[in-house]
């Protein structure tokens, strides 16, 4: 009987002790926000373009983390980002529906601009400068090419141009040998299973 009592008591004491430790730990090591969402967000290209159907990269990351969104909705990120997110989430990679276009930047035709500031309000990265009734212009170094400024413009004076390639940013293409081409083709076929 005493043995039984001792066992019950000691187990209760342990349970109480661990309970207290865990309670303290959950307070001390509490992580604000969803770490998965943050991790996914660092993988996204941060264009803030909304092509995924969410109003920016952060909301999309949160949606993917909570399982509301698929891993293949980021258009500018392309296959690479999709594979990384899928790897992080531990889910099967999905097919990319829309191919990413060449990197673009917005360009304001200044002589047609009426200075309405609507594009400035639409820009997700504050890359347009201007003031009411003054010409607006794009800070090309910061433009993510999201196209969100094109729609609100009442006089249609914003063009999306292909980002000029700089000599310093040029990089070698794959060798044009048959085997290199074969690798690209095979990758296309196996993409959904590759991680």
């Amino acid at each position: 009987m005493t043995q039984l009592l001792a066992a019950i008591l000691s187990f209760s004491a342990f349970a109480l002790l661990f309970g207290v430790v865990l309670a303290i730990a959950s307070r001390v090591f509490k992580i604000e926000g969803n770490p998965m969402a943050d991790n996914i967000e660092t993988l996204l290209p941060q264009t803030q373009c909304g092509q995924c159907g969410f109003p920016g990269c952060k909301p999309y990351a949160a949606a993917v983390a909570s399982g509301e969104a698929e891993v293949n909705q980021c258009v500018p990120g392309g296959e690479r980002t999709m594979l990384q997110i899928a790897g992080l989430m531990g889910v099967e990679p999905k097919n990319i529906e829309e191919e990413p276009t060449a990197p673009m930047i917005a360009f304001v035709r200044e002589d047609e601009c009426i200075g309405c500031t609507l594009c400035i309000k639409a820009c997700p990265v504050d890359a347009i400068i201007g003031a009411p009734k003054q010409y607006h212009t794009i800070i090309t170094d910061h433009c993510t090419g999201c196209t969100l400024c094109v729609e609100p413009c009442p006089v249609d004076c914003i063009d999306m141009l292909i980002k000029p390639e700089l000599l310093e940013h040029w990089s070698w293409p794959l060798p044009d040998t048959a085997r290199a081409q074969l690798a690209i083709e095979r990758k296309g076929q196996h993409a959904p299973h590759a991680t």
Partner: peptide
């Protein structure tokens, strides 16, 4: 690097 800057700006 560009994504980091864009995120910061956003």
């Amino acid at each position: 690097a560009f994504a980091d800057i864009s995120k910061e700006r956003s």
